[in-house]
């Protein structure tokens, strides 16, 4: 049952991820991405990480992707040649990453069923609490660094948006 659902989610995720870059129309790509986010959330649910699944939908599907769609519709991007100059570079990097994954998997071997054991302890304590506890104890420093980076990005965006207005006033 578990491996069957993983097979389904994994296949759809891989297929829709390919479709995101392969489709010609930007809006179709966004739809493919939406399907992919949904299935990633489904994968989280099969791992008993309901909190992550909900956050995945709220943040990625509900907010970020809507903004993508917003931009795509505002700019009214016509059908574009997906295969640009950077195509070769991208393919090369992708191949390197694939080789890495293949190497790691073949070196370490596929895990038997480690996920079940870990999730039972998480489910006992409450999934959301476990995430929160991990974020604020073990991973406090990376968490703060990540929030700082996001803050910098936010300030940068405000500065860039304000530049034109301030330049005109001078």
């Amino acid at each position: 049952m578990g491996s069957l659902s993983f097979l389904y989610f994994g296949t759809v995720i891989a297929l829709s991820a390919i479709l995101v870059v392969a489709l010609r129309k930007p809006v179709s790509s966004v739809i493919a991405l939406l399907v992919m986010f949904f299935h990633i959330a489904g994968l989280f649910v099969t791992l008993h990480a309901e909190f992550l699944a909900a956050v995945q939908l709220i943040v990625y599907a509900g907010a970020i992707l809507v903004l993508y769609l917003f931009v795509v519709m505002l700019l009214n991007v016509k059908e574009d040649d997906s295969y640009q100059r950077q195509f070769r570079l991208g393919m090369g990097l992708g191949l390197v990453a694939l080789a890495e994954v293949v190497y790691i998997v073949s070196a370490a071997g596929l895990p038997e069923e480690p996920i079940r054991e870990r999730t039972t302890s998480a489910a006992a304590a409450g999934n959301t609490e476990m995430v929160g506890r991990a974020l604020y104890t073990t991973y406090l420093f990376p968490f703060e660094v990540a929030s700082l980076i996001l803050l910098v990005a936010m300030i940068g965006a405000i500065l860039m948006a304000k530049k034109g207005i301030m330049g005109e006033s001078k």
Binding site: A41, F51, A54, L57, I58, G62, L69, N127
Partner: peptide, 18 residues
Amino acid sequence: DINIGILYILAFVSIGAY
């Protein structure tokens, strides 16, 4: 009664915008 009930609702309400 799922343990993330309110988040579940918020997640799907946000999909409604599509």
